[in-house]
Write a protein that binds this DNA or RNA. Structure first.
Ligand SMILES: [Mn+2]
Ligand SMILES: [Mn+2]
Ligand SMILES: [Zn+2]
Ligand SMILES: [Zn+2]
Lengths: 146, 146
DNA sequence: TTTTAAATAATAATAATTCTTATTTAGGAA
DNA sequence: TTCCTAAATAAGAATTATTATTATTTAAAA
């Protein structure tokens, strides 16, 4: 997504296309690592030295409310953000603190169908998320899903 | 689990059975709500007015390290603790901030088998967790799984 | 009973997040 | 294009969450 497309994306949600919002969203789309607020800040700072950390916090929460970004949390507590809104799950590597997308339509469908069949009374299901936790064997190398 | 059983449980893990640890663990076993540190503190305080908040933090982390309690997190960020170590999943109600256990051996097996079949290279899976997010329809009433 | 390593209480320090307010700015109106 | 205004930002203060420090207490082993 280029700058103009991002601008249109924001406009569609009724959000002013400020420079700060453009760079934060571009950063999130680029880094697919599910970065923390601090990580977005550090990434953006060199090219935008006057941007404020508070603005990053505010901007990311604005995006969450507008539904163009989602929060992802791990057992380690730090809050992370994800611009990938397609229905997907996460692999969390405890030794490297990485979060990696795990996309598997078939699995999603299986679980979704199973839970819908099950019927949970007095509750409306909005989202089902699978978290696969474990550790990278060689922290230098990438995880690859076969 | 009564006080003596909890005492034995701690001893088995090589942890001193201090009064503070006994009441914190008993509290977690009793409240199955996946309470936060603050909630454990408030629950315990009336009967133990000299207990320190720092001790609750320390104690819960000690339990996590010893493997007798696990952390549970939600997208809202607050850290919660769970003494239920059986393989189970969670229903998270966003409007009431409640976490409820969802126990379904069959579903667990299906997902586990699927992921094991899939093979994730350079990664050792330790745990698979499903989080069902949504909202209570009537916040006063309980969620019931059929 | 005595000893001692480990745990706790109290409090200080640090880290994470939110709030406040003066200033700036995007985008619509003129 | 220029003007206007509501909304957004920067800077810093305040709040909240968590961790660290240290003197005192205590569980449990000798
Ligand atoms: Mn539970
Ligand atoms: Mn936090
Ligand atoms: Zn993701
Ligand atoms: Zn649970």
């Amino acid at each position: 997504m280029d700058f103009e497309a991002i601008k249109a994306h924001l406009a569609k949600k009724g959000l002013k296309a400020t420079h700060q919002r453009l760079v934060v969203l571009q950063c999130l789309l680029m880094l697919k690592n599910h970065p923390s607020v601090e990580q977005v800040y550090e990434k953006i700072r060199p090219g935008n030295p006057t941007i404020s950390l508070g603005t990053i916090y505010k901007t990311l929460e604005t995006f969450v409310e507008a539904g163009i970004v989602q929060r992802v949390s791990t057992k380690e507590g730090a809050m992370k953000y994800d611009a990938n809104l397609s229905r997907h799950d996460h692999i969390y590597s405890t030794n490297t603190q990485e979060i990696i997308d795990f996309e598997d339509e078939e699995l999603s469908k299986i679980v979704e169908n199973y839970i819908n069949k099950k019927r949970i009374g007095n509750f409306k299901v909005n989202d089902i998320r699978i978290q696969i936790e474990g550790e990278k064997i060689n922290p230098e190398k990438d995880i690859d899903i076969i």
